[in-house]
Nucleic acid binder design. Structure first.
Length: 238
DNA sequence: CGAATTTGACCAGCGC
DNA sequence: GCGCTGGTCAAATTCG
């Protein structure tokens, strides 16, 4: 039988490794979110292009310009409410089940200022129920409640491919991460994280990072290995 | 009791 | 013209 000291050291080592894996898992989750965002941007651009090809569908093409915007908001999949906290006050005036999506679509009007013409539609994403899609229609004739916006944005991830709404979430992410870096950073997981807001000013560079990551086979392999390790950690018997 | 939400009814646009 | 669908209205209901 091992000595108590040896057991304690073993437990501490396992706890440290567990902590490392949790942080690594968190980092990978953020990378995945960024990739999802990239997908949403490309998907939006594709929809715009498809709309341009069809003469009858001029409204969506124009909508890509400014007046209509779509926002993808990550929520708890178990949370059935269609509430998107974006700093504005909304009054719900209707709900419908649409043909293309079994989840109900909720209709809101902005009631922060009298006469504000902005409406929004909120519906759970048909492909990924952990996201809701908020479609904003029109432009606000007043300012956003910055306090409420700050509080709400910190609690959910908002992807805004073509929005005029001033959303600017702060996430912690190192987009310079490559396949070999991941394994190296396992030794020092804190180095994986840095303040994304400091590099947020240059969104194009971030997109370029993500694009290069998605093309990098080493990154794909490392991502798969990290996911496998996380699963193995959570389900060691399987 | 007033405000907000729910929900069924109604209306307009579009395709067949 | 008819039916389908998305969007809006407004009475009923719920909540603080």
């Amino acid at each position: 039988m091992d000595s108590p000291n040896y057991d304690e050291q073993k437990v501490e080592a396992l706890q440290a490794e567990l902590e490392c894996l949790q942080k690594e898992n968190e980092a990978m989750g953020l990378v995945l979110e960024t990739m999802s965002r990239k997908y949403n941007v490309l998907h939006q651009a594709y929809i715009c292009q498809e709309s341009d090809k069809r003469p009858r569908l001029e409204v969506p093409a124009a909508a890509c310009a400014s007046k209509t915007s779509k926002v993808f908001v990550k929520t708890d999949p178990g949370d059935q409410s269609l509430i998107v906290k974006d700093g504005f006050q909304w009054r719900k005036y209707g709900q419908k089940v649409t043909k293309d999506n079994p989840s109900p679509r909720a209709y809101f009007k902005c009631c922060m200022a009298p006469g504000c013409p902005v409406k929004k539609k909120v519906q759970r994403c048909v492909e990924d129920k952990s996201y809701v899609v908020a479609t904003y229609d029109g432009q606000h004739n007043h300012d956003v409640d910055s306090t409420a916006a700050g509080q709400s944005l910190s609690s959910s991830s908002i992807f805004s491919p073509a929005t005029s709404i001033p959303v600017r979430p702060t996430v912690t992410l190192d987009l310079n991460l490559s396949g070999s870096d991941i394994s190296q950073n396992r030794r020092n997981p804190s180095s994986v994280m840095h303040d994304y807001s400091s590099s947020n000013a240059n969104n194009k560079s971030i997109e370029d990072y993500v694009a290069s990551l998605t093309k990098d086979p080493n990154f794909t392999l490392a991502l798969a290995a990290a996911v496998a390790r996380s699963i193995k950690t959570e389900h060691p018997d399987n």
